[in-house]
Amino acid sequence: MSGPLPVLLAAPTLAGWEGFVQGLVDCGARVGHARTGLAALESVTQARPVLVVADEGLPDLTPLQLVLRILGIDAAVNAAVVSSLSEEDFHEKAEGLGVLAQLPPQPGERHARELLARLEAVLAPTTGQARRT
């Protein structure tokens, strides 16, 4: 994919996300922000990000509800979810949604780099199109 990688952060505020956002930018992402799940859905419809990162603090939708609704709009949009659930509980709840990664509350720069590396691994090298995992 040429140009900056479009990433949408769906979180009520950017406070506490500075390290994560900086990690995304340092790895070549262009980061947009939506304060609510509904705003994120509108952005997915209009801007077509390659990745949506959904915070568990959204005021209107749970992160997994948001992922499910994104799938109905564009199944090629990858998603990562901030969740304090155990890995096992998260896997059970997110099964079948194609979530790229579970992130801890208040992820940092390292998490951003790891997430983008995982995303790059699922991007089709010949077409530049995202594939669901």
Score class of each variant (00 low, 15 high):
91 H>F: 02
68 L>H: 12
61 L>T: 12
99 V>G: 03
63 P>M: 09
100 L>Q: 07
58 L>E: 13
93 K>W: 06
70 I>Q: 04
90 F>G: 08
72 G>Y: 00
70 I>Y: 01
64 L>K: 07
97 L>W: 01
53 V>I: 12
100 L>K: 08
59 P>T: 15
52 V>F: 10
97 L>H: 10
89 D>Q: 08
71 L>Y: 05
71 L>C: 05
86 S>I: 07
51 L>C: 14
48 R>Y: 10
64 L>V: 07
86 S>W: 02
82 V>I: 15
78 N>V: 10
55 D>Y: 05
78 N>K: 12
57 G>M: 09
73 I>D: 00
96 G>I: 05
72 G>F: 13
50 V>P: 03
71 L>D: 03
57 G>D: 13
78 N>G: 09
58 L>P: 09
51 L>R: 08
83 S>V: 02
55 D>Q: 08
96 G>R: 03
57 G>Y: 00
54 A>G: 13
51 L>V: 11
87 E>Q: 11
74 D>F: 02
61 L>K: 14
100 L>N: 11
75 A>L: 11
47 A>S: 13
64 L>T: 12
53 V>L: 13
84 S>N: 11
67 V>C: 06
72 G>I: 04
83 S>N: 02
80 A>V: 01
94 A>I: 08
45 T>R: 15
55 D>N: 12
60 D>G: 11
52 V>A: 14
55 D>G: 11
63 P>I: 13
76 A>V: 06
99 V>C: 07
71 L>A: 02
77 V>M: 11
54 A>P: 15
87 E>P: 09
77 V>C: 15
53 V>Y: 09
97 L>S: 04
56 E>G: 07
75 A>S: 12
95 E>M: 13
93 K>S: 11
93 K>H: 07
47 A>K: 04
85 L>Q: 13
52 V>L: 15
84 S>C: 14
98 G>W: 05
100 L>E: 04
60 D>T: 12
58 L>F: 06
83 S>D: 01
73 I>Y: 04
81 V>H: 08
93 K>T: 08
92 E>D: 14
74 D>N: 14
94 A>F: 03
100 L>Y: 04
60 D>S: 06
97 L>R: 03
55 D>R: 05
61 L>P: 09
79 A>H: 12
75 A>Q: 10
55 D>L: 03
76 A>Q: 08
47 A>N: 06
80 A>S: 01
48 R>P: 02
50 V>E: 15
98 G>K: 01
45 T>Q: 15
59 P>N: 14
44 V>I: 10
79 A>T: 15
58 L>D: 09
95 E>C: 12
66 L>M: 02
89 D>P: 13
